[in-house]
Design a protein around this nucleic acid. Structure first.
Lengths: 281, 281
DNA sequence: TCGTAGATGTCGTGT
DNA sequence: ACACGACGTCTACGA
């Protein structure tokens, strides 16, 4: 294994405590933070938040996650989003108060504070999280923009892009160009079906450019997206704006299921039993 | 600690496995799902997603969270948001393939799939999450609306609210009313400092109402928010719209600055000595 | 630090 | 299911 440089083990492995005392949790928290580990605390707690808004959450068993970058997350058994949280850059502190373990996460600018008070901790874990966190995503608006720049004819025959993120009084314009007649065209890109907000955005840009040119009629506005809602379409028509149906490419080679990791070096812990399928398609 | 009632606990308590084999993890996953537990899996994995977009994440140690409502989250050591996820309602399945534990979460409408392939599992936990998940939040736009309806004079002397969520061709209007002259007023509320988007929204509403009345001059548009950006202010001026500075009440006492927890929980706490306060500062 | 817009946004609400 | 807008949105990027 490449991790075996006999100096100090870079990743000491997970630390887990079952039904620890608050003081034990306190020690473990300190050690885990020192090691830059991600911490999870599962137990019965209440949560109070005050800052940009204010909130209060009554007692219950929840999962608290503390990341080494200062993030804090409180998760219940439902919803993808945490019920309470604190953004990266916050400072986590813990103490025992009134027989409860209080984990407090604070930050300034804006000033806000999250208090998680554990009546009882069922489980503590310190997890040394490592490895790449950069994600390659395809199908974004950036992909759609690349597509438009490479194949402007897909937008309209004779369309010529002149600039991207062109500044205007109303904000940056995704793609700015000219049509076959030399008329300025403001293009707003959206990766998915659009509603009234996108039309409003495009309209602002078109008006800003029109004002620059002191000519309200000579600037075209073009919304490029997979589709539009009825209301958005009505707004486009009313405002003399246009729509071109186009979706961002999902990927260069689409998503092939054959990933390169077929030759993985594993073969250790896992057992090689072939019929290992469980509840699988 | 005093969890001494060693009869059968209503909730079976956390289940944790250290460096389990993939097959052991498989069993534990199935059992945890059956109990409606929240599952965390920490280990070295890759992540592939395909659906509304597509993404790929190379090998690394990460924390996978599977909720009984079908949510899936993949967290690295940084960022508040998961690096990959699947929304509630998805179906989780697990299997051993090619010596790796594959956890696959799928859903339809939209059709999307998340694959987490563990080369190695460092830790598995099944956590019986229970308790209230309803959160009381103050400082929202709804609070600001209540404030405006209770004290319309804070918006403007003589202002009379007539309806909330009034329908228009451009969408629902937060508060619709009349000024002292009987002129229609469209009010758009924002709980925090606003940018160009909110101005565009207000403008759409005002234009829709003006069109209803076939009279472009007689409808006022009023943005109520704590503050506006420079660009937004310029847009307001250009469009003949108005701004009133107002922030949502933070709580029932609306007091800011009275926030230090001097008497919030227990009176005895105090004790600024570092003996009980740990971790960092 | 602030402003601006994208996002696999997520989430609630109404139709 | 879809549309629409709020959100303690979060996050990246620029000025």
């Amino acid at each position: 294994m490449d991790r075996g440089t006999d100096a100090d083990p870079p990743t000491p492995g997970p630390t887990t405590l079952h039904a620890p005392t608050h003081r034990e949790t306190l020690w473990a928290l300190e050690e885990a933070f020192g090691e830059g580990a991600l911490v999870t605390v599962f137990g019965r707690c209440t949560v109070e938040y005050e800052g940009r808004a204010a909130s209060s959450l009554g007692p219950g068993d929840r999962l608290l996650i503390l990341k080494p970058d200062g993030s804090a997350l409180v998760h219940t058994d439902e919803n993808q989003s945490p019920v309470n949280w604190q953004p990266p850059g916050s400072e986590h502190r813990a103490a025992v108060r009134d027989g409860r373990l209080r984990v407090r996460s604070t930050r300034e600018n804006p000033d806000e504070r999250l208090d998680v008070r554990f009546e009882r901790v069922h489980q503590f874990s310190g997890l040394p999280v490592t490895g790449g966190r950069s994600l390659e995503v395809t199908g974004s608006e950036a992909d759609l923009k690349r597509r438009v720049l490479e194949r402007p004819d897909l937008v309209e025959a004779g369309f010529t892009p002149l600039a991207t993120e062109r500044e205007s009084a109303a904000g940056p314009i995704d793609v700015y160009g000219e049509d076959a007649e030399g008329t300025p065209v403001v293009v707003e890109l959206k990766r998915k079906r659009v509603g009234p907000d996108a039309v409003g955005q495009l309209k602002r840009y078109v008006e800003a450019v029109s004002r620059e040119r002191a000519d309200d009629r000579s600037v075209r506005g073009l919304l490029v997206a997979p589709s539009v809602t009825d209301r958005a379409r009505a707004m486009l028509e009313h405002d003399g704006l246009e729509f071109v149906a186009m979706a961002p490419p999902v990927s260069e080679e689409s998503a092939e299921s054959a990933e390169s990791d077929s030759s993985s070096d594993s073969g250790e812990s896992s057992d090689p039993s072939p019929s290992s399928a469980e509840s699988d398609d």
